[in-house]
Nucleic acid binder design. Structure first.
Length: 325
DNA sequence: TAGGCCATCTGGTCCT
DNA sequence: AGGACCAGATGGCCTA
């Protein structure tokens, strides 16, 4: 009854995978590698068989009868249809999740800190995005210049120490670094070949470009030395393709509504992140933390680090948690 | 080995 | 009926 994974790959491949051009050997191998994939269908079939048996038992047993429409017998034909439907649904779901991941990737690209080699995790990307929106709306609302330190602090609220270090490191890069990035396709700070960084956060001025890629980031459409956020966004918005906004400002984006703020105006994030760490990268491009050794001299970003550790839920749950707090 | 992160499968629900 | 969306479950990979 078990369908071999190879057969399943072929089956799926002939469906939506071909449509999306996802039929590379690597991806097929990825599918074959995954234990949760396809083999489960066999299990599922058995489950249905057992349901039938259970129903038969119910008829002559003492158990109360099941309500609702009686389940039809799983004939071979029905089973086949069910299986085909399931395979199609799986393929759709896969495609959907790929789309979601693509969107997340696009989001990563416009974040103040982007590196192809050092991807932020999904949850950290969402947190950073929230902070970024918050910081930008703060600029729009108050029109005030954000000090570099303050900007970084805003961005790092609620982020893990490794991500905070990463953000702070990226924001410290000057235009030279942007050039480097252009040549090397990655920021030296974010280079995954450099495994450990600490940041001596000393810039009293404003964050310097790049915030990610010059080509894509809205703040980089006019690559010029950063004066200040106030200068850049004051009466004359940056020279970008977006026409100047003439209408009333977006009602403060309901900062207090979108982000629950403490009295000092910072997002209210409960738990403290109570260990200090460097950030390191893995071969898979993820940021990982390394706790500092006691007594090791270090220069950390003086960010009031808080970290609300959401439990491991689905991304939907995580989104809810992020946007409801 | 534990924990974080991830991709995938799956069944339920809602919508068209 | 079929597709989109969602959340739970599962297991692999990686690092500390």
């Amino acid at each position: 009854m078990y369908m071999k994974s190879k057969d399943m790959v072929e089956l799926v491949n002939t469906q939506s995978w071909m449509d999306k051009g996802l039929s590379s050997q690597n991806e097929i191998k990825e599918q074959e590698r995954r234990p949760g994939s396809y083999g489960m269908l066999g299990t599922l079939t058995e489950e249905h068989d057992s349901i039938e048996e259970e129903e038969e038992e119910e008829e002559d047993g003492d158990k109360p009868k099941r309500r609702g429409p009686k389940k039809k017998k799983m004939t071979k034909a029905r089973l086949e249809r069910f299986r085909a439907r399931r395979v199609k649904a799986n393929a759709r779901e896969r495609t959907r999740m790929h789309g979601l991941n693509d969107a997340l990737d696009n989001l990563r690209r416009v974040m103040p800190c982007y590196s192809k080699t050092q991807k932020l995790s999904k949850i950290e990307t969402l947190r950073l995005a929230r902070n970024y929106i918050w910081a930008l709306s703060e600029v729009l609302e108050t029109g005030q210049t954000l000090e570099g330190k303050g900007f970084v602090e805003m961005l790092c609220k609620g982020l893990s120490q490794p991500t905070s270090n990463l953000v702070a490191g990226c924001l410290q890069l000057g235009p030279q670094s942007a050039l480097l990035e252009k040549h090397e396709e990655k920021s030296p700070i974010c280079d995954s070949t450099v495994s450990v960084h600490t940041f001596n956060y000393q810039s009293p001025g404003l964050p310097s470009p790049p915030y990610g890629h010059m080509e894509t980031h809205p703040l980089h459409l006019k690559p010029q030395p950063f004066k200040s956020l106030g200068d850049s966004f004051g009466s004359h918005p940056p020279d970008c393709s977006t026409p100047p906004y003439e209408g009333p400002l977006t009602p403060p984006l309901s900062i207090s509504g979108n982000f629950s703020l403490k009295q000092d105006g910072s997002p209210d994030l409960e738990k403290s992140y109570n260990f200090m760490s460097h950030y390191t990268t893995t071969s898979s491009g993820h940021v990982h933390s390394t706790p500092f050794q006691t007594g090791t001299p270090r220069y950390d970003v003086p960010v009031d680090l808080t970290y609300d550790s959401y439990s491991h839920h689905g991304i939907g749950t995580q989104l809810n948690a992020i946007f409801s707090d």
